[in-house]
Design a protein around this nucleic acid. Structure first.
Lengths: 115, 115
DNA sequence: TCTTGACCTGGAGCGCGCTCCAGATACGAG
DNA sequence: CTCGTATCTGGAGCGCGCTCCAGGTCAAGA
């Protein structure tokens, strides 16, 4: 299996090395395989997962949310639990979108006023 | 002009008294009128403005953004500057929405998978 | 008048999400 | 083998956005 150094992983995911280590410490990714000497070796799967995490971080989910997310998707939870959790997260994202739309409406109003 | 105590203002806006003071210190609201004894007296206009600020905070704008927002709307800036600023803010909100939508798509995928 | 509770100020403290640092170790190029 | 760069670990530091606290002031009700 082809793997990649921390520097390359950081480069390809757009996440800093420090943050990658932080995410691993926090249980959001990995644990990442190590070389004999102890250096991290990121697989393509790791990179993909980091992409998912980044996607959710950008959407505003907190570290604790993501930890739970990881646990749900990895551990032995009943499908109902998983789906319930996922739906819950989806609902909160919808609320964020709603908040954003309200703010955009206000902006549009102001833009119209000053145009 | 009818005014309202800090406690009532907090109650009606859903923003804590401490946070109201903080916003005022940061220049996001006010300065709020004071009674002879030095207590704050919030007008309806103040409450409305606090509502706007809250709306933008919920949409994820930072304190510095809002300070600039206030400056733009209050001070003597050319209409072009205002509109440019507002459009810029709107664009960044759109990006947030896009990030949220991406995350929701991922969630939907997982939901579909586990359903 | 006295009590009680809301409010004042300035400043410290806190949780989050990184980010940086020191000191040690690994490893590829020459 | 040596050098230089990349990486390792544990822990400190930081910016943001509040939140809390101490010590004092104000004001309405009994």
């Amino acid at each position: 299996m082809t793997t990649v150094t921390p520097a390359t992983a950081a480069d390809r995911t757009g996440v800093s090395i420090d943050t990658l280590r932080y995410y691993e410490r926090e249980g959001l990714i990995g644990p990442i395989r190590r070389s004999v000497g102890g250096r991290r070796q990121y697989t393509e799967d790791d990179l993909f997962w980091i992409g998912l995490v980044t996607c959710f971080r950008e959407a505003g989910l907190g570290i604790a949310d993501l930890r739970e997310f990881v646990a749900i998707l990895r551990a032995e939870h009943s499908p109902q639990d998983r789906v319930a959790f996922l739906r819950e997260r989806r609902a909160s994202l919808e609320q964020r979108v709603a908040a954003l739309c309200r703010a955009m409406e206000v902006l549009d109003e102001k833009i119209a006023y000053y145009s």
